Amino acid sequence: MRLVVIIATFGRKEQLARLLKYLERQERLPDEVIVSAPDEEHVGICERGSFPVSTVFGKRGLCAQRNHALDHALKHYDVITFFDDDFIPQDNYLRLLEEAFQQHQDWAVVMGHVVKDGARSAGLNWAEGLQVLAVEREQISIESKVVDHVGAYGCNMSIRAKFIGDLRFDERLVLYGWQEDIDFTSQLRRHGRVIGLSTLRGVHLGLKMGRVSGERFGYSQVANPIYLIRKGTVPAGFALPLMGRNIAANLVRSLWPEPYVDRRGRLRGNLRALAHVLKGRIEPEYIQHIAAAEAR
């Protein structure tokens, strides 16, 4: 099988360089890595090592950047793997992934198990992420578990390329995206299973640099799920509880916010989006107006 890794990046060229160097440790090397960024400023120098590294430049935004890379990759590869630029895979990740796709022809999407997710905390630095993986390697064996999911977690997800066809990430989910991964991969369930595989391990650093503001993100926490329910790609039974949990967390924690999360900004964004939804205005791209106002 031919396998490509796509990394969409923004404002993290040092982290990107570390990840590209680290991927040379994979027991099964990628046949190519495609880095997608708005422009060269976000990439730096991508030196060729044990595998080819290509760069594509275009519009800013996670969905647009992934789509641009897909356009370059689809005709040439059997498996498309998306890694966030702050995801560190275990050294056997791509080898086990290839074996999984070869052995299970009914699997359309495979995501790995995030051993530790810095997105749920203050985040992890590179050294801390490596330490977590070092502890993981000491485990004698890991029980293989396969769990079906509505969609995949975008920090590490792989797709059988022949099923993608004309499907692309929804560019109305602008900038950071949020739930763009679930939207995209849930549509692939008509071709096969969307599963999580416990033996594919990695650490998501959850770096805070390069992310959108609290108010913009809070707006997306409400507007994006409602939009995807109306679109018909994400079931209400998944999206509404997720939205409710986020609003509740922002409401409660805005009283004593964590230093690494703009809870009050998120809550303002939640309330603004709820007001829009009540008026029948469902526009994920409205966060661009918030961004423009913040820039003034």
Rank of each mutant, 00 (worst) to 15 (best):
L19C: 02
E136N: 14
M1T: 04
G218F: 00
C63N: 15
G206E: 01
R18A: 06
T199C: 08
L130W: 08
V135Q: 15
K59R: 15
F217T: 12
I247W: 09
S141H: 13
T233L: 07
L167E: 09
R137E: 14
W256I: 13
I34E: 05
L62C: 06
R201L: 13
L16P: 00
E258L: 13
K13C: 06
I182N: 03
G192W: 02
R172H: 05
I182M: 07
Q15M: 13
G218S: 00
I80S: 04
F169G: 03
F57A: 10
G44H: 08
G11P: 07
F10W: 13
L94I: 14
R245W: 10
G49S: 14
L29W: 07
D85H: 09
R211D: 07
R25M: 09
Q15C: 11
K231A: 10
G280A: 06
A236N: 06
I159T: 03
L133D: 00
D91G: 05
I290T: 11
I226H: 02
F51I: 01
H68E: 13
Q65T: 11
G49Y: 08
E14S: 14
P30H: 08
R160E: 01
A161Q: 02
Y286P: 00
F169Q: 02
V35A: 03
I140M: 12
G44N: 11
R168G: 01
S254K: 04
L242C: 10
G237V: 13
L70M: 14
G44C: 11
I80T: 05
P89C: 09
Y93R: 07
I142D: 11
G44W: 09
M209D: 15
E47G: 12
A273F: 00
I142V: 15
T185E: 04
L267Q: 00
V135G: 09
I247L: 14
C63K: 06
Q15W: 09
